[in-house]
């Protein structure tokens, strides 16, 4: 008797690795980064810097010329009681810096002034070339 004749099924093509889950994950990551990121362009002005230039122990810092700059509650900068515009302030600082390159600027803002006023004054002074600047604050005794 003849052997039963067997038909072999063609071997199944091997499944390629499915990339659909990868696409899913990538889309979710994409949406995550789109939603959580902020795209504001922000800069900074150092307020407290690492003291690289701290005077060595025992050495008295050289007291050069000091310019005391007050900021009124309305945000107007003034020097020795004279109110100045930002342009006038820039000219004055540049002129003082030309005479005393080590000019130290002490900014004494009123507590009622707004943040923008202080930053504008610091900005003007920095643009005029001042590097040595400190903010001081007068505190009322309770």
């Amino acid at each position: 008797m003849a052997q039963p004749f067997r038909l072999t099924r063609p071997r199944k093509a091997r499944n390629a690795i499915s990339i659909a889950p990868m696409i899913d994950v990538m889309l979710i990551l994409l949406i995550f980064f789109m939603v959580t990121s902020t795209y504001l362009d922000l800069n900074m002005i150092p307020a407290v810097s690492p003291r690289d230039d701290a005077p060595a122990a025992g050495k008295v810092p050289d007291r050069g010329e000091t310019l005391i700059l007050t900021i009124g509650a309305d945000g107007t900068p003034s020097v020795q009681g004279r109110g100045l515009s930002q342009a006038g302030l820039a000219a004055m600082i540049a002129e003082r810096l030309a005479r005393h390159p080590d000019l130290q600027i002490v900014v004494l803002p009123s507590g009622g002034a707004q943040m923008q006023a202080l930053v504008a004054v610091m900005d003007t002074a920095a643009a005029a070339g001042a590097v040595n600047m400190r903010i001081v604050r007068v505190e009322a005794r309770p």
Binding site: L40, D41, L42, N43, M44, I45, P46, A47, V48, S49, P50, R51, V119, D123, I135, R137
Partner: peptide
């Protein structure tokens, strides 16, 4: 800012918009 400095913070910056 003063309190941060007093606490020993050595690197404090004010954020500004260019």
């Amino acid at each position: 800012l003063a309190e941060l400095e007093a606490m020993g913070a050595r690197d404090v910056a004010l954020v500004v918009t260019p």
